[in-house]
Simulated assay, not measured.
Amino acid sequence: MQSAEATNSTRKPTNLSLDSALLKEAKILGINISRSAEAGIAEAVKRHRQENWLKENASALASSNAYVEANGLPLARHRRF
Rank of each mutant, 00 (worst) to 15 (best):
A26R: 00
A6L: 14
A44S: 15
L29V: 09
A4Q: 09
A70G: 05
A37M: 01
V45Y: 08
N65D: 09
L75D: 08
D19Y: 01
A37Y: 02
R79V: 01
K46V: 01
S63A: 11
A42T: 01
K27T: 06
H78M: 12
A60I: 01
R11A: 15
S34K: 08
L61I: 06
L75K: 06
V68T: 04
P13K: 13
N52G: 03
E43Q: 10
A66H: 05
E51P: 02
Q50R: 02
W53H: 11
Q2I: 00
A70R: 04
P74T: 13
A6F: 12
K55N: 06
L61H: 10
L61Y: 13
S63Q: 07
L54V: 00
A39G: 00
K24N: 10
L18E: 08
A26E: 00
W53M: 12
N65H: 10
A26P: 07
R47V: 08
V68G: 06
A62W: 04
L29W: 03
H78F: 09
I28N: 15
K55S: 03
L23V: 04
A6R: 14
R77M: 10
N65I: 02
F81K: 13
S9L: 13
A70P: 03
N15A: 10
T7K: 09
S20F: 13
A26F: 02
Q50C: 00
N15G: 14
A39L: 08
S36F: 09
N32M: 00
L16P: 04
L61K: 07
A70Q: 09
L54T: 07
N65E: 12
A26V: 05
G40E: 04
N32Y: 09
A37K: 04
E69C: 07
I28A: 12
A39E: 06
A70L: 11
K46E: 03
K24V: 11
W53D: 03
M1D: 06
R47L: 07
E51D: 08
E38V: 07
A37C: 10
G30C: 11
F81G: 08
S64E: 07
A66C: 04
S36W: 05
G40P: 04
S36H: 06
S64P: 04
H78V: 06
N57M: 02
R49K: 13
F81N: 13
L22Q: 15
L29D: 15
A62E: 15
T14S: 12
I31H: 12
A62G: 08
S3H: 13
A39V: 07
A4K: 09
A37R: 03
E38N: 04
H48C: 03
L22G: 14
A70W: 10
P74G: 09
N65V: 07
T10I: 15
A4W: 07
I33T: 12
L18F: 14
E56V: 01
S3N: 15
N8W: 05
A66Q: 04
N15W: 11
E69M: 01
A39Y: 05
Q50T: 00
L29A: 11
I41G: 06
